[in-house]
Design a protein around this nucleic acid. Structure first.
Lengths: 235, 235
DNA sequence: CGAATAGTGTCTTTTAGACATTATCTT
DNA sequence: AAGATAATGTCTAAAAGACACTATTCG
């Protein structure tokens, strides 16, 4: 039935396609990314973004493939998830013309149980200094990671995305602290709360307070799970 | 050398990968997208985003492949170019698990010489009503186009991207008109010019004016070709 | 009560929006 | 001069930012 079509396609070899993840978490040391140490060629021993092949017979969609990879590597199911882009050229992988479809995930580091095995000999959180990690990365993963970090940092400025680095229940002060750590600058409490109230994406959990040796703080949760809201901007 | 690796990959069939383009232009009738009518199965006779396969032996990179497709279909070389994303799942193409790497291009409609041949029997500009075209599109191209249109419309709000829909030399009134047509609302001249002056991405072409039967208008050009600047926004 | 952080209010400065005015060309 | 659009200025209303103040808990 598709004979006419197939011979057109047969003229051109298909590229290799992998799904790779930039998994971010905020630890006491700052923003960190989860990396896997490669146990096979090429780039054996190098750190790399965790990833895998698309399983044509198993994965429903690209995002499903990415979620499978995330679950395989971290044991975590449903954090914030966003496509960063596709990176592809003739030279990035010595095995041939290849594509990396890259997703970014934000998670709570506590929830993660790191999984080894497969092509990976080791997995660990790596601190991000500026827009990179201390170690050189396999393939073009340093450039991909840089793109993901830039996207993340930009979105902190104009969306509610940082909320996904917090547990389900959080206080406004905790949320402000996340913004401040990602932005690298202090924010005014009053102005911050006005801005958050405006976009109306969180609700107080009535009766639930964060208690310490001072005035207790109201706990909040997201209105819709996994939603990200954009702040106002104009032309 | 890569034996251990290759047998891992061999377990999984590679998906089909195409590069598709959402090519936009602003005509007297409004925002339009360039579509190609398919001459082969599947979806013969349907309109689709112009696209092609990656030529592993010829294309240096994804963007190079996209630029080749653009040049093949329009004869135009270097307009504004941006990756929209990857769309991939098991069901979007009856020939099998497939990926569409989609780019968005902005061009001047005058410069284009539409090319036929190949899998395409016809190519034409189609007006965009809301977030879609009047005709149903092949594959999941309606959803892809919707994503591209949304991206374009959003970027009009907070970037200087609309400048790429104008010729090299343009007046401030012409630039404002492009914004107004894309946004669907009128802007205040004074406020618009303040905003444009702030981001400082265009320069007057000294001595060059647009003449009509009224006061002549200063012509401007981009400071750096193809640059897009973001307006201020804050957390 | 003191220490500590939560939460709100006030004032000032800056910015945005509406609108008016002036400028410069053609016919 | 009339008509048209370019370009800039002015005034007001709204928003942002700095900072102070009040509130509530623990020890």
């Amino acid at each position: 039935m598709f004979a006419a079509m197939n011979n057109i396609e047969d003229l051109h070899q298909r590229p290799i396609v992998s799904v790779d993840l930039a998994i971010f978490a905020l630890t006491p040391d700052g923003l960190e990314v989860l990396l896997a140490r490669r146990g096979v060629e090429p780039f054996t021993g190098h750190w790399a973004l965790p990833g895998g092949w698309i399983h044509v017979d198993e994965d429903e969609s690209l995002e499903a493939a990415a979620r499978r990879v995330l679950s395989d590597k971290t044991g975590v199911a449903a954090p914030y998830f966003e496509q960063v882009g596709v990176f592809g050229d003739a030279a990035r992988d010595p095995r041939g013309w290849s594509l990396s479809v890259t997703y970014m995930a934000l998670i709570m580091p506590d929830a993660v149980i790191l999984q080894h095995g497969g092509n990976v000999t080791d997995a660990a959180w790596h601190p991000i200094a500026g827009e990179a990690t201390a170690q050189p990365l396999a393939f073009d993963h340093a450039a991909i990671l840089k793109t993901a970090i830039t996207r993340l940092r930009n979105k902190v400025e104009y969306t509610t995305l940082p909320v996904h680095l917090l547990p389900e229940a959080f206080t406004l002060s905790e949320l402000q602290a996340v913004y401040e750590r990602l932005l690298g600058r202090l924010l005014d409490k009053s102005a911050f709360r006005k801005r958050i109230a405006e976009v109306d994406f969180i609700v107080p959990i009535v009766g639930e307070m964060r208690r310490a040796s001072n005035r207790p703080a109201q706990l909040y949760r997201l209105k819709q799970a996994r939603s990200t809201v954009f702040f106002d901007r104009t032309i």
